[in-house]
């Protein structure tokens, strides 16, 4: 699949934003809550990342001015559900900000609004994952680990971002370190399992199966349907070279591992340095998630390529 940069940017930034919002919501009425100003800036950052991501996602549309129509088909379409949930999440997020401003720390209403924001954030990220996981045409996407991986990336992103604010705010504690490192460990694990699994998946479809001509024997393309590549080939035919895949995977793992080490280090370092370590961890994770998301597209093999000369899918 052709990697759409706007979609990669959208899923990574908004994923981290929803992760941060979810964790801010869950911790709002607890001991692990950020100090008032820090919490407000964190909330603004979460909403900023989400909004930036949502805007980026409209850039890949042919008709961005009609984007509002995408809220209508939530009964059948995961893309529509994602849109509805994404917008709905703004309501508890903004309410959380207002309550936070009014200084109702430890209040039951704050807890309720926070949990609502967290639940909607999680559902939005799940809907994003389901857009891909529901496509039977791409075996690397129609995979049970796709949604968990999207969720864990959001958790890791949110966890490292929360740690930055907690560290600079001088309130970093066990909860923050555990959230960030658990997110990173889970993501590393899921990504490794996912790659292992898609590499071992059977590729049992071939051109004979696609054309239904298997009873005649093996089927090969001898003449393309057209002389220049068409939309289907440009959009669905993109595939990354295998040696690049290996290199990019190692780069992703390296970024996430260093990020994890920095999170652990920040637990041992004094305030300001710990904050810088957490900042670096978040940036490295973001870079790694960009590479991973690019690979997610570039490794995806669409069945339609069987009609265009691919031997297996």
């Amino acid at each position: 699949m052709h990697p759409a940069y706007s979609v990669i940017l959208f899923t990574t930034t908004s994923g981290a934003g929803y992760g941060l919002l979810a964790l801010l919501g869950l911790t709002a009425a607890t001991e692990a809550a950020l100090p008032r100003i820090g919490g407000l800036i964190a909330l603004l950052l979460a909403l900023g990342l989400i909004t930036f991501g949502l805007l980026a996602s409209t850039f890949h549309l042919g008709r961005p001015e009609r984007a509002w129509r995408a809220f209508s088909q939530w009964r059948s379409s995961w893309l529509s559900r994602e849109g509805v949930l994404a917008v709905a999440t703004y309501v508890p997020a903004l309410a959380l900000g207002l309550l936070w401003l009014s200084g109702r720390e430890g209040d039951w209403l704050l807890a309720l609004v926070g949990v609502t924001a967290a639940v909607l954030s999680i559902l939005t990220v799940m809907a994003t994952g389901m857009i891909y996981a529901s496509l039977k045409t791409i075996r690397q996407w129609h995979h049970p680990l796709v949604v968990p991986a999207y969720l864990s990336f959001a958790l890791a992103g949110g966890g490292t971002l929360l740690l930055i604010f907690a560290s600079f705010g001088g309130v970093a504690g066990l909860v923050h370190w555990i959230l960030a490192s658990a997110g990173l460990v889970l993501t590393l694990l899921l990504v490794l399992l996912y790659w292992r699994s898609i590499d071992r998946q059977p590729r049992d479809l071939d051109p004979a199966a696609a054309t239904g001509l298997s009873n005649l024997g093996p089927v090969r393309q001898w003449e393309a349907a057209h002389t220049a590549d068409n939309y289907v080939q440009r959009e669905m035919g993109y595939q990354v070279a295998r040696r690049h895949t290996g290199r990019l995977r190692r780069l992703t793992l390296l970024g996430m591992t260093i990020s994890l080490l920095l999170v652990i280090a920040s637990a041992l370092l004094p305030g300001l340095v710990a904050g810088l370590a957490a900042l670096l961890a978040a940036l490295l994770l973001f870079a790694a998630s960009l590479v991973q998301r690019w690979l997610f597209f570039a490794q995806a093999e669409h069945i339609v390529n069987l009609y265009y000369g691919a031997q297996r899918a």
């Binding site: 051109p207 004979a208 005649l216 093996p218 393309q221 393309a224």
Partner: peptide, 8 residues
């Protein structure tokens, strides 16, 4: 689109 395949 009309593709050309060789079968068998």
């Amino acid at each position: 689109r009309v593709h050309g395949y060789e079968a068998g």
